[in-house]
């Protein structure tokens, strides 16, 4: 190892593991600061900077946990998943995983879900900008082609299923209210997407609409999407109506790409 490599390795070990071998590289200088204090300036800056990123990205999770637990989480996360990407926006990507794998957080499934919801809001924010589907495009589809049409979800669309009241709790905290009980009767489905004005929005989805959207995400054509919907509706006709209702809402809110394909039989 060259001396430059050694110096950088020691610097990084100091930031990442608190190893103080690095102090040997620091010259004693006149003035108020000893080498240890000079090293600590970098250590503190590192910890503060990354803590701030998680605080900004996960504001409601922070409120849900309270300061003490949030600090414990940050400490544990930094030790387990130090940042590796050049961009800070990716730093928290493994926070949901961390929360589901580490005590005491893993005992509360809602924490992972709140973190995941907040990550998806961030992802939707600066996802790609492809053009969105317009009503006029539907009119130009030939009747016979409808069953083979593949609708594609816009890049900013993320689907989320929660086993706990994660999104409701997020909403309550956002409006300064106490969160509801974490337990819910059955899973809640959500769609997160950027709206035409570039703000990020989210909506509750019925089980039927959720399955329609996942089948579109899996590349199934309209005919199959209607079949999927029928399983969650009273009749086949009702299923198709549900899909049409979903298309209408999704077009208004920019959930689909303008690029629609006809699957060749």
């Amino acid at each position: 190892m060259t001396s430059l490599e050694q110096l950088q390795q020691d610097f990084v070990n100091m930031l990442n593991h608190g190893s103080m071998d690095f102090e040997n590289h620091i010259a004693a200088q006149e003035g108020a600061l000893a080498p240890t204090q000079r090293a600590e300036i970098y250590q503190n800056a590192y910890r503060i900077r990354l803590t701030k990123v998680l605080e900004q990205d996960h504001e409601m999770l922070g409120l849900y946990l309270g300061d003490e637990l949030f600090d414990e989480m940050v400490k544990g996360y930094l030790a387990r998943f130090p940042s590796s990407a050049p961009s800070l926006r990716e730093f928290g990507d493994r926070l949901p995983q961390f929360l589901s794998e580490h005590q005491p957080f893993s005992e509360h499934g809602i924490l992972k879900e709140i973190a995941l919801f907040e990550r998806l809001l961030l992802k939707a924010f600066d996802a790609g900008d492809s053009k969105t589907l317009q009503f006029a495009q539907l009119q130009s589809i030939e009747q016979a082609n409808w069953p083979n049409i593949q609708f594609q979800l816009h890049e900013s669309v993320y689907l989320l299923t929660c086993q706990f009241s994660a999104v409701e709790s997020w909403q309550a905290l956002k409006s300064d209210q106490s969160p509801p009980s974490p337990d819910i009767q059955s899973p809640h489905h959500w769609i997160i997407a950027r709206e035409p004005d570039k703000r990020t929005g989210f909506y509750a989805l019925s089980t039927c609409h959720y399955h329609c959207l996942t089948s579109m995400q899996n590349g199934l054509p309209f005919g199959f999407v209607c079949e999927a919907a029928a399983q969650y509706a009273e009749s086949e006709e009702q299923g198709t109506m549900q899909v049409m209702e979903l298309l209408q809402k999704g077009i208004e809110l920019g959930w689909f790409k303008s690029d629609i394909r006809v699957q060749q039989a």
């Binding site: 060259t2 001396s3 430059l4 990084v12 590289h25 590192y46 990354l50 130090p82 590796s84 050049p86």
Partner: peptide
């Protein structure tokens, strides 16, 4: 400066030593 080493990113602007080695690097 340097900010990252291997898989680790400090997201800070860490100073270089002012050496001949650092210059050629």
């Amino acid at each position: 400066c340097f900010s990252s080493l291997g898989d680790f990113n400090s997201h800070d602007l860490l100073p270089m030593p002012y050496t001949e080695e650092a210059l050629s690097h």
